[in-house]
Amino acid sequence: MADLNPALNAPSLAAGLAGRRIPFEAVPVIDLAPLLADPAHGATAAAIGEACRTVGFLYVRNHGVPQELVDTVFALGRRFFDEPLDAKMAIHIARSPHHRGYFPMFEENTDPTLTADLKEGFDMALDLPPDDPHVKAGVPLHGPNVWPEALPDFRPTLERYYGEMRQLAERLMRAFAVALDLSPDFFADKIDKPLAQLRLLHYPPQQGHVEEKTLGCGAHTDYGCLTILAQDEVGGLQLQNSAGEWIAAPPIPGTFVVNIGDQMARWSNDAFAATLHRVINTSGRERYSVPFFFDPNFDALVECLPSCHSAEQPPLYPPIRAGEHLLNRFNATFAYRKTTESDTPDH
């Protein structure tokens, strides 16, 4: 068991790995209560848009997701990761043709220039039956989830949480549309069957001298529209500001962290920033987090929005299908997919 006193056996950090401590107000904290009452609330959408343009990260509070549900998900995550490795490997992500299930330490490498990430995780997504048209057609990443047999409460709880996260993400996408001078429903038909992925993560404490090649999660941008992150009290998340400094993003009780992903950056012609971030767990404790990655429909065309380009600011990226982009990133970052045909990342 890891020593719970972080002062004992505290790791040393290589140059550039310490996140500078600044007041958390430097990452905006936005109250979503007005947005829950009015899905197109202009002032809240404007505040969200300003955060997306200047930071790429924000905290949200009064988001409507029950805290007891968040706490239960964390408790179940700890129970799952405490299961014997053989039990977890029985639902290894490579056994699923739809990229669902467990992945062990070093399976994922979010920064392919370095070594693999010091974390383990569990992935689920939109659960689809065999007669679903996309499943019948063999469209990648569409199908059923897989579940651990020893935890009967695991599936219903995560499915409930997934539903809450999807609803919150859809609200945020409406706010994004308003902030980008589009109709509030602009994204609706592009996210009605999303490649949305819920992930449970466990990071062991890092010991000794921590080098950049041994991070809990290497520096990266997320792949989709947005990410909604629940983090425990341990901390360890860092984001890079426009000056190239790494800034700590500590947990704030009752909030989620929201950040922009690559596909929203492409849609907005980089008006909404996809910010580099990483995780370094030097707390001396186990760290757990629950990100929800909200990606568009597989066939959604991600191309520069009409409000985000002009003769002076032409589109920075060519159009791409959302599913193609996501597959490219999975192929580049997951070890088990190296045995299959893969493409280089396009962003």
Rank of each mutant, 00 (worst) to 15 (best):
F298T: 04
L215A: 13
Q206V: 03
E324L: 13
V302I: 15
S307A: 13
A18C: 08
A116M: 04
R199N: 06
Y161R: 06
P315R: 09
Q263W: 01
A265E: 07
V60D: 00
T227N: 04
R160P: 00
R155C: 03
D31Q: 08
Q263F: 01
A322N: 05
I252M: 14
L327H: 03
N5D: 15
G261F: 01
G49R: 03
A332M: 12
D189H: 11
G49E: 03
E341L: 14
K119D: 02
F81Q: 11
A14W: 06
Y288V: 06
D192H: 15
L114N: 10
H309A: 12
G16Q: 14
F176D: 00
L151S: 05
R160F: 01
I93R: 10
G19S: 12
G143S: 13
Y161V: 02
D123A: 12
G208C: 08
M89T: 08
L69W: 14
F74A: 04
S342P: 04
L126N: 06
T255Q: 04
I93E: 03
R100V: 10
D82V: 01
E107M: 09
D31W: 01
P144V: 04
G236Q: 04
F81T: 06
F330W: 15
F187M: 06
T227A: 07
I22W: 07
R79P: 05
A2Q: 06
G19A: 15
C304H: 05
E341V: 14
L158V: 07
N259M: 05
G77A: 14
D82F: 04
V290Y: 00
V178K: 04
A300N: 09
T333D: 10
D71F: 05
C304T: 14
A322M: 08
E211S: 12
H41D: 15
P84L: 13
F154H: 02
G163F: 06
A90K: 04
S307R: 09
C52M: 15
L326N: 01
C304M: 08
D127T: 08
H98I: 12
R278T: 02
F186Q: 00
K119L: 08
T339H: 09
Y162F: 15
A125D: 06
D123Q: 12
V257A: 02
S310W: 11
P318C: 07
A150S: 15
S307G: 03
L36M: 07
P97Q: 11
A332Y: 12
F154I: 10
H202A: 06
R21C: 09
V135D: 01
A322V: 03
T72Q: 15
K119Q: 14
P129I: 12
D82L: 12
E245L: 10
E233T: 13
T214S: 14
D262C: 02
Q197W: 04
A116G: 11
F57E: 03
S183H: 13
T110G: 07
A196V: 10
T110H: 13
E68V: 11
G163E: 12
P66W: 09
M1I: 12
V135K: 02
L158S: 02
L239R: 01
H309T: 11
